[in-house]
Design a protein around this nucleic acid. Structure first.
Lengths: 342, 342
DNA sequence: ATAAAATATGCAAACGTTTGTTGAAGAATT
DNA sequence: AATTCTTCAACAAACGTTTGCATATTTTAT
C-alpha cells in the first residue's frame, strides 16, 4: 500500500523544485535538455503518474467527457460509445457514461453530477420523454461544449449530430418499391419524436415520388416493441386489402412482424417484404435475415467526439447540425429480385 | 457563459467564510441551525454545485469508480455496467467505462489513466489474453480496492465475483439428459481460460453422474464464434455416430450450430437439441429459441459494486471469491418433452 | 459575579499541479 | 573589463474544498 509519487517527491530527490519537474515533464523549452532527461528518467523509475485531479483543479477543467444516453445495452448506443471512447482516448481523455433510462429526472441528476465532476464536455442523446431542454442550458452557460447526437432538441441553437432518418426511410421504401412491392405498410414511432416523424416523411415521400397512394390504414403508430410489431402485423394482414410489404421504424417491431408472418406461414420475402430500422445485431440472425437501415453508431460516436474537440478549442459558438447518411443493408427479408447488396 | 459559483462566492455574499459554508452544506453539528438554513437557501438560489475536483483533491480520492471490460457491446457486459451504475449512483459515485478490446496494452493504459484520475476503486473483467496480472497490482498497492468479475486471475489473492460456470454447464447438460438426449456434444472454449475449463468440467461431470460415456470425439474446442459453431456442427453431424444434442460454451456458436442444422433440415429439438451459454438477447429471437444459461449480468454488476463499497469502508483486505449461481433458461431448442420452464 | 463549559465561527494550512515573474549565472558583445 | 543577452531554475500564487485548531460569544453552574 505504497503512497502515490508526486511531483514534489521527484523534486526533492533531484534537489530541485516542483515547477521544474512539471515543466520538464511537459517539455517546456525553458528547461535544459539534460535536466529534462534526468527528470523523465526518474519519473519513469519511480513510476510517477500525474495526478489529474490536481491538474484539473488547477486548469479549471478535467480531461473527461460526459456521455448521457438512454441506455447502453442497445447495439446502437454501445457502438456510439465505442466510437466516442476511441477518439477520446486518442486525445488523452476519458469518458463517463450515464444512463438516463429515458427518464427526465435521471437526466437532470446526471447533468448535475457531470457539472460537479468538471467534465470538459457533454455528449447527449435525449430520452424519449424529454421535451424541456432548459436543464441542458446550464451546461452551455458554464462554457462547457454540449453536443447532441441521434436524439436532439428541435430548436436551432445547439450542435447536433444526426442521422438522416428521412433519407434512410426513403432508401428503405424505394428499395421495397424496386423489389416490386406496391402496398407498403409503415409501423411508425411516436409522432412527438422528430426522428420518427422524419422516418414517416421519408416513407411518404418515397411513395409519392413513385406515384403510389398514401393509405392511412397502412400506417400504424406503435411503441416500437416486438409485441407491438406482432400485433400490428396481425391486424394489417387481416384487413381487407393487406399490405405486401412493411417498413418499420424499429427492428424490434420488424422482428415482431416477421414472427407473425412465419407463424402464419406467409412467405418472406415472396409474399410480404420487411425492412426494419437500426440494423440491430439480431437482424442478421433471423430467418430470413432482416433488411435494415444502418445508422453506423460507431461513426456517429467518433464524429460527435471530434466535434467536441473542435468545439473545445474554438471560442466562437456556431450552432450547427451535421447529418450523416445512413446505409440500407439489404438482406433476405426484402430481396425477391435478382438485385444484390449495395 | 456565467462563471461557476464557488463556496467563496457564497461566503462573501453572506459575510462569512468558506469553512462555515462548507460545514453548513454538510450539516456539521458545530454550525447553528439558522446559519445552516441561510447557507442552504443561498446555495440553492445561486445554483451552487460542489466542485468535486477540488474536493477530490482535498480528500485524496474521487467519487468515481473505474470499470474495465473487454467490450461494452455485449449484452452481458452492458448489463453488468448497468448494474454497477445503479449502485454507484445510489451512492453518489459515477462510473468511468474503459474498453480493453481484449488487448493487454489497452488494459495497462486504462489502469494508468484510472490511477491518474484518482478513482476510488476499479472493477475489472479481464481480456482473453491477459495472463500477467502484475499491472493490476499497482492498483492495490495504492490502496485502491480492486475487484474482478466474470473473468478473473486464477490466483487466490484477489476479490472475485464469478459465475458458477461449472454449475451452469452441469444444469444445461443435465437438462439435455432429462430431455432424453444421450450423445451430447460440447463446443468448448479455449482451454487456457478457467471459465471455459469450468464449463467443460460441468459438462463432463453431468455425463459421468448420469452414467454416460465421455467421448473425446464429441468435444470440439473452438473460438466461440458463430462460424466456428457452424463448422463444428457440420463436422460432428457428418461423423460416424453423430450427436443428438450439443451444449455450447457460447451462444454465438450455438447459433451457428442451429443455422447448420436448419440448413440441413434436421429438426430442432426433435432430432438434435441445442443449449448455449450466456443468454444473449438474440437467443429468444431465433426459431426455435435457444435454451441458454443466463449469467444475470445486472446482478453481477450490482454485486460487484456493493462489494466495492464494502471494501472501501473496511480496512482489512480479505481475498475472497463470490460465486453466483447461473440460471438455465429453457426454450424451444432443447425442449422435446412436456417439461416446462423452470 | 465569576469561572467553567458549551456553542458557533474564523483562521490557516493542505491536497498536487501549473505558470507568471523574478533572479542568478554564464555567454556574448562592446 | 564592463555591459548586455541568454539560458536555466526557483519562488510563489492560484485552483476550490475541507478540517484541526484557535478564538469569540453565549450559556450554565457555582
Amino acid at each position: 500500500m505504497g503512497k502515490r509519487v508526486t511531483i514534489q517527491d521527484l523534486a526533492k530527490e533531484l534537489g530541485t523544485t516542483p515547477s521544474t519537474i512539471s515543466r520538464a515533464l511537459h517539455d517546456h523549452p525553458g528547461i535544459s535538455k539534460s535536466m529534462t532527461k534526468k527528470v523523465k528518467e526518474l519519473a519513469q523509475k519511480r513510476n510517477y503518474r500525474v495526478n489529474s485531479v490536481a491538474s484539473s483543479l488547477r486548469a479549471g477543467k478535467s480531461k473527461t467527457i460526459g456521455v448521457i444516453v438512454p441506455m447502453i445495452n442497445r447495439d446502437f448506443f454501445a457502438n456510439v460509445i465505442s466510437g466516442i471512447e476511441e477518439i477520446a482516448f486518442q486525445n488523452g481523455f476519458n469518458v463517463i457514461i450515464c444512463q438516463s433510462d429515458n427518464k427526465v429526472e435521471k437526466e437532470i441528476q446526471h447533468i448535475n453530477t457531470l457539472i460537479s465532476t468538471g467534465v470538459a464536455g457533454v455528449l447527449v442523446s435525449l430520452g424519449f420523454e424529454t421535451t424541456d431542454y432548459t436543464p441542458f442550458d446550464k451546461i452551455s452557460q458554464l462554457g462547457i461544449p454540449l453536443i447532441f447526437f441521434d436524439r436532439a432538441p428541435d430548436h436551432e441553437k445547439s450542435i447536433k449530430i444526426l442521422n438522416n432518418d428521412k433519407a434512410g426511410a426513403y432508401k428503405a421504401v424505394q428499395h421495397l418499391i424496386d423489389q416490386g412491392y406496391r402496398r407498403i405498410a409503415h409501423l411508425a414511432g411516436p409522432g412527438n419524436l422528430s426522428l420518427y416523424k422524419a422516418r414517416k416523411e421519408g416513407y411518404i415521400d418515397a411513395l409519392k415520388d413513385n406515384g403510389l397512394p398514401i393509405e392511412e390504414r397502412l400506417i400504424v403508430t406503435h411503441n416500437l416493441k416486438r409485441e407491438a410489431g406482432y400485433e400490428a402485423m396481425k391486424k394489417l394482414m387481416n384487413s381487407k386489402n393487406p399490405p405486401d410489404a412493411v417498413f418499420s421504424a424499429s427492428d424490434y417491431s420488424a422482428l415482431g412482424a416477421l414472427l407473425y408472418l412465419k407463424e402464419e406461414r406467409i412467405k418472406i420475402p415472396e409474399e410480404v417484404g420487411i425492412v426494419g430500422f437500426s440494423n440491430e445485431g439480431f437482424t442478421k440472425l433471423t430467418g430470413p435475415e432482416i433488411t435494415s437501415v444502418d445508422q453506423h453508431g460507431k461513426e456517429i460516436g467518433k464524429y460527435s467526439a471530434k466535434v467536441f474537440f473542435e468545439e473545445m478549442t474554438s471560442d466562437v459558438f456556431i450552432p450547427r447540425t451535421i447529418i450523416l447518411d445512413p446505409k440500407l443493408i439489404i438482406r433476405g427479408s426484402s430481396l425477391r429480385n435478382q438485385k444484390q447488396n449495395t
